[in-house]
Design a protein around this nucleic acid. Structure first.
Lengths: 283, 283
DNA sequence: GTTCCATATCTTGTATGCAAGTTTATCGAA
DNA sequence: TTCGATAAACTTGCATACAAGATATGGAAC
């Protein structure tokens, strides 16, 4: 490998110090600074696009858990080369949505049933501190917006619009996080609950569920508005408890989409790629 | 196994009986694809190695926040090509440890001071539920192991061995998570506190700090052993409160390593601000 | 001196070819 | 048929080449 032109690489160190900027460099950054934000979401690269598409399809179960993915076929499908596809898959592997076996193949992860419970515990812990802080800090206009979201849910429930209901549901929780001043927590919650979200797509139509959830939200919000943090936390806890209600039944009906995880033993795991997942084919 | 002496081929055929129709290009629908494997070690790929090295160096501040990274120079430094280096950098970007600007360059992220507080809140929330559950579920042998870790901390504190102390500290918290049956929570905590860990490397030598922390751990553990969940949670909360004690001073002394407003997570309408105008006019 | 512009030289993004394993298919023998 | 060995066809991991945008440099004009 030929080194081109040694200009400032007198030092062979791979880490160069901070590049200094001229005093008026800021004005030149206008064009790039316009779109150069949102590190996790939409970049303008092909890899990001492939990632988003695959992410959506996996979460929505449009690609079934256990399905095999091929970098080559995905590449020709998306009309790009393997490189961006591979980057997307690596990222999905970090989120435990796909499993890459080095020289063998890549599959969409089955839903790790054993992790669902822990994910819900995590979500509860995070949302409780969030709703407590939001009870203190939320402004009047934020309460107005929250009530509007509850109303949107009520309408969606009446119209039996599950998609719209879910969107408003997410927006409700996100708005609470914003009111609390904890945007990172909501981002974290979203990261943790991916497997739960996949499972949600299997929920059976249960009469009155959406209206019940709406009422639970209203209870949380009412307590918040009274600045009663404890009561709001209790209401939120009660609300999130409802999540794990029908999980065993859902699992029973779609056994092939789940996997029992035996012993995750990743304690000081070097920031490891992902927990080892033992698949237990129960044919 | 219910199958009587089924050969591998027969098992394969049995798997095959499900539809192998490709509903979408690139997605092959199979019932059970990859056989369970035990890659106990995380990954033996070059990309993983590069990632681990860079991760360590960034966390330990051996690479200073704000430094520029070049895929080419890193590649020749590691003796590999750009591809595995790039994969490592993309992963580090997901963790907000580096920032990749598409056609411009890659830099090591400065420590987002505004996120430190939220990270500590998150850690508190997660560790509190963990210690509460561990108070219920921990076995006698686990308590023995935990006391041993406390003792190791005491010894390290006496010997003024900061590295050994920190290792035992981490192990203590990890062991509590394991006793609680929440391995995923500890993994998540580790992910969240990366920026806090970087900051920890800037802590000034403060007399008696290690011994104080050891006593706090002992208090947590004593409450756990009495199965007093509330008291254990309170002790843990008190322990973690100590984290944010000297943060402002640390930041004041190393202002160039921090950035005020990073993260910029546009949750609602208002557009994000410009990411960073390098305010480091060296020379 | 300052300002502006062309250009050389960086940077990362993507495509492609090869290497090294793994799985599947094929063929032959008992 | 059943089993076994061999080879063909996959798979991902990595190296390399090229493309396109961003930055720094140098010189010309004023």
């Amino acid at each position: 490998m030929a080194k081109p032109q040694s200009s400032r690489k007198a030092a062979t160190k791979q880490v160069r110090d901070t590049k200094q900027v001229r005093s008026r460099a800021g004005v030149r950054m206008t064009s790039s600074a316009a779109r150069a934000r949102s590190p996790l979401l939409s970049r303008v690269t092909s890899a990001a696009l492939v990632y988003e598409r695959l992410h959506e399809d996996i979460i929505a179960l449009r690609i079934r858990p256990g399905a095999s993915l091929s970098e080559n076929e995905l590449a020709s499908s998306f009309g790009v080369s393997r490189t961006p596809v591979r980057e997307a898959l690596l990222r999905l592997a970090d989120e435990s949505l796909v499993e890459i076996v080095p020289k063998s193949g890549t599959t969409v992860s089955r839903i790790p049933y054993a992790q669902i419970g822990e994910a819900i515990v995590i979500r509860k812990a995070l949302e409780e501190v969030t709703v407590r802080e939001a009870s203190r800090r939320a402004t009047k206009s934020q309460f107005t917006g929250l009530w509007a979201l509850v109303e949107r849910q009520r309408e969606a429930a009446k119209a039996d619009d599950r998609i719209g209901f879910h969107a408003a549901d997410e927006a409700f929780h996100a708005a609470i996080a914003e009111a609390a001043g904890y945007p990172g927590i909501w981002r974290l919650v979203n990261q943790v609950k991916v497997q739960v979200d996949r499972m949600r797509h299997l929920t059976l139509p249960e009469g009155g569920r959406m209206m019940r959830v709406t009422k639970e939200h209203a209870a949380v919000l009412a307590a918040m508005e009274k600045r009663d943090g404890d009561k709001a936390v209790a209401a939120m806890r009660n609300h999130l408890d409802g999540l794990e209600h029908s999980l065993p039944e859902i699992r029973r009906r779609n056994a092939d989409l789940f996997v029992d995880e035996a012993g995750v033993f990743v304690l000081s795991g070097t920031a490891g790629r992902k927990p080892e997942v033992r698949k237990n084919p129960k044919n």
